[in-house]
């Protein structure tokens, strides 16, 4: 049985930029522990010297010309999607 501590969940949430409530941390501790226990059955497999299969297409080095393509979308349209903007810039709370 995989055990994952409350602190592990809090650390993972920080890494994931998720501000969780206390109740969420409690239930995620149980669920994440159960899921990690389930996937541990892979340890039964001998994978020594097996090359990992990161993709299935066999495609490699798909090139295109190095030219700007604005994708038929204008700067104004993109800025309009931002929750807050000013003077053609996206606005966020003070960083420094």
């Amino acid at each position: 049985m995989h055990t994952i501590s409350r602190d592990d969940i809090i650390k993972l949430a920080t890494l994931s930029s998720l501000k969780l409530t206390d109740e969420e941390i409690d239930s995620l501790q149980v669920d994440v522990g159960n899921i990690l226990s389930y996937v541990e059955q892979l340890n039964e497999l001998d994978t020594k010297d097996v090359t990992p299969a990161y993709q299935v297409t066999g495609l490699s080095n798909v090139f295109r010309k190095d030219v700007i393509n604005s994708g038929e979308v204008s700067r104004e349209q993109l800025l309009a999607l931002a929750p807050d903007s000013q003077d053609l810039q996206i606005k966020v709370p003070k960083v420094l």
Binding site: V39, L42, N43, L45, T47, V50, P52, A53, V56
Partner: peptide
């Protein structure tokens, strides 16, 4: 992650 991708190759 790497273990799972190796197992994926065995499945393929």
């Amino acid at each position: 992650y790497q273990k799972a991708q190796q197992a994926r190759q065995l499945l393929i």
